[in-house]
Design a protein around this nucleic acid. Structure first.
Lengths: 138, 138
DNA sequence: TTATTAATTTGTAACGATTACAAAGTTATA
DNA sequence: TATAACTTTGTAATCGTTACAAATTAATAA
């Protein structure tokens, strides 16, 4: 079992008290929590914690690829400590975000279940386009 | 060529001046524009247009499945009049959103190009989870 | 037509997630 | 121990979006 501290070190993030607490929380709560959920849940055990720290820390984790930032929810960014490839399904009624295995090949196949009623599928990627990539390299 | 007005009628949206203008704009500008871009571009030719109308109208279009709302950009919602299945790629430097053909099968294959530098892939879907679906049906 | 009702648009104000920023605190290094 | 670098914190500002009620326009009934 990989500890939060080790996970941070591997991703070149210096482990502070706050960073370890936030990473630990993410590793123990695979519920794709929002900043606010993380902040509110950690506050009782870490009363000096600042909301800004949670924002900063998750931004840092994200930049170092120690966590995944999900834009599935247009209201808030959600965070996922599991960085192995998998898909997500969000219920727009209860807001719950589910993990979806990516072992199927076709997207159509992937979502044809009797349980979930899929109303929208988005396959999105972010990175650098050819022009910006060239500019970056010069 | 399908007109904006016809596209609205097909999707059971009553065609008003504003609605036609916004749909026309989306059909002619496949650049996945934000609300603000649409508003600013239409203002010169429609000086009485309100930003709220653009929000309301796109929300309505989206609900009627006349357009697709993309959450690829965490800063703003982007809109796409093309509702046939395709993927998107956003450059996080210039903000440009590209269409990606969905003819390839594997997600890995899909993004292994020499041109685009892919740093993040998200396969997201939204709908109703089993519990909420059951609740909805009762 | 005219009156009445429903639908649509508009502008302002409020909301809420996120970011900017500078001060305070902590850790590393000379 | 002193200095510099890093991290955390709290407040204020920003900005996309939403709430809401008034004004306008369109549809329908009398």
């Amino acid at each position: 079992m990989e500890t939060a501290k080790k996970h941070l070190t591997i991703h070149h993030v210096r482990p502070s008290m706050q960073r370890i607490a936030i990473m630990k929380y993410l590793m123990e709560h695979c519920t794709h929590p929002t900043v606010d959920t993380i902040y509110n849940d950690l506050l009782p055990v870490m009363p000096t914690l600042s909301r800004t720290t949670v924002y900063n820390t998750l931004e840092l984790f994200s930049a170092k690829h120690a966590v995944q930032a999900l834009t599935i929810d247009k209201r808030n960014v959600r965070y996922d400590a599991c960085t192995t490839p998998h898909a997500h399904f969000m219920c727009h009624k209860c807001g719950h975000v589910f993990d979806v295995e990516l072992d199927a090949i076709s997207i159509e196949l992937l979502y044809n279940t009797d349980e979930f009623l899929v109303e929208k599928v988005e396959l999105n990627s972010v990175g650098l386009c050819p022009d910006c990539r060239e500019e970056e390299e010069n």
